[in-house]
Computed example of a mutant assay.
Amino acid sequence: MDVAVQWVRTYWTSRSRGARGAVRRSRLPEAFPLPEAVPPFVHEVRMSERDGFVPRSTVVDGLPPRTEVELTEVDGMLKVLLVVQRVPEWASSGLDLAWRPAAVALRPRQTLRWQINHRFRAEQGWYYRLDTLNVSYGKNSAEVFIHPPTRRIDERSQLP
């Protein structure tokens, strides 16, 4: 399967929830250039308040686990579904799990950006995470996700 997947995951606490922190986070990239790798692969970039939002990346060969993303190739198209497991009682994402977008169909050379945010309780208090899933189907360049995506799904919600 000729697929490149990029997760951009941003973590923060209530210390950077105010206006100054929100402005700083809004300036963080939603996508990064892809490393040299043979598809299929997953490129994950993590940015954390704890590290000053410095990007740290890893690359894993193959497709992402089906518990995170369902990728199905049918009749020359790629169906992509971001999987949201049952939200634990201690987490609040604001999601209505009864209504979620259906799988997105991509043709070759198309891209998808799917965003979703979460709030989790930890011993130290609440922490927050923004997940941005970038998917490219077919031949692509290292800069494929730097350009606006062909399709975009935004499941971000107002987190308390």
Rank of each mutant, 00 (worst) to 15 (best):
W114Y: 15
V38T: 14
W90N: 09
S93C: 11
T150S: 15
P108N: 07
S57C: 03
A105T: 13
L78E: 01
L130G: 00
E89K: 12
L71C: 01
R109Y: 11
Q110I: 03
M77W: 00
R129G: 03
M77D: 00
A19Y: 03
V8R: 01
R119K: 13
S136H: 03
F53L: 03
V38F: 03
L71H: 04
S26H: 06
L63M: 12
P160L: 11
S141Y: 03
R46G: 02
P108V: 14
P40R: 12
L34R: 04
M1H: 08
R107L: 12
V59D: 00
F41S: 08
G76A: 15
Q6K: 10
E123M: 05
Y137I: 02
R17K: 07
S57R: 07
D154A: 02
D51R: 12
R152H: 13
L97W: 02
W126M: 02
Q115E: 12
S136W: 00
K139E: 14
E36S: 10
A22Y: 05
I116V: 15
P65R: 14
E73N: 07
T58W: 01
R56E: 15
N117D: 06
V59Q: 05
A19T: 11
D2G: 08
A142N: 14
R46A: 01
A105M: 13
R20A: 15
R50V: 10
V80S: 04
P33M: 12
V80I: 12
H43C: 07
W99K: 13
